[in-house]
């Protein structure tokens, strides 16, 4: 898997992007520069890290909110 393919995987599975934004971004991926791929890929990878690091707090708060 190269970085372009990896970026496509991350875009498709992103939680931050809407479906419409995903489609728009996926169309643009082939035209992105390597630098842009790195930048966007890093952000989307960080998305996972953010939720992973805050997993317990998120889980607790979401459960509380849903139960209200």
């Amino acid at each position: 898997m190269d970085k372009y393919q990896a970026l496509i995987v991350l875009i498709k599975n992103s939680l931050l992007l809407s479906d419409k934004s995903k489609i728009n971004l996926l169309k643009k991926v082939p035209d992105l520069t390597f630098k842009e791929v790195n930048e966007l890929g890093s952000v989307l990878a960080y998305e996972y890290e953010f939720i992973e690091k805050n997993q317990k707090a998120i889980e607790k708060n979401l459960t509380q909110l849903i139960q209200r």
Binding site: M1, K3, A6, V9, S42, L44, A45, E49
Partner: peptide, 12 residues
């Protein structure tokens, strides 16, 4: 999923 994990690692 394994492919998501692999993709993520490429950028971290």
């Amino acid at each position: 999923q394994a492919n998501i994990q692999a993709a993520r690692l490429l950028f971290t």
